[in-house]
Amino acid sequence: MILVVGGSYQGKTEFARSNFVNAKFFNQTHLFIRKRLEEGRSQSEILEELLEATKDGNWVLIADEIGNGVVPIDSFERKYRDIAGRILIEIASRSTEVYRVVLGIGQRIK
């Protein structure tokens, strides 16, 4: 499993598609997490579903870094930020490679 993270509109998808040609892509992982949270799923359930969905083949997960802002006033927004962050830490620890994309440039951080 490979993880590609970065701010929004940084060219993460382009970077992933041009560098991992034969991979399968799970894009917008943060939005998947958000949707499942809205449906009332827990952190561990969402992580399990992500791992199950990507267990066969070479998967590249792509996600926005959403934690680099002011603490939101809305409690769901805070929960989303925290749980997305923690799930991505879990994904990163299970990934063989992790890239952070800034300005379309991917830096390998693992």
């Binding site: 870094e65 680099n68 930020r81 997305a84 962050g85 923690r86």
Partner: peptide
């Protein structure tokens, strides 16, 4: 240094 829930 890091964002919220970044593992810092």
């Amino acid at each position: 240094y890091g964002g919220s829930s970044s593992g810092k």
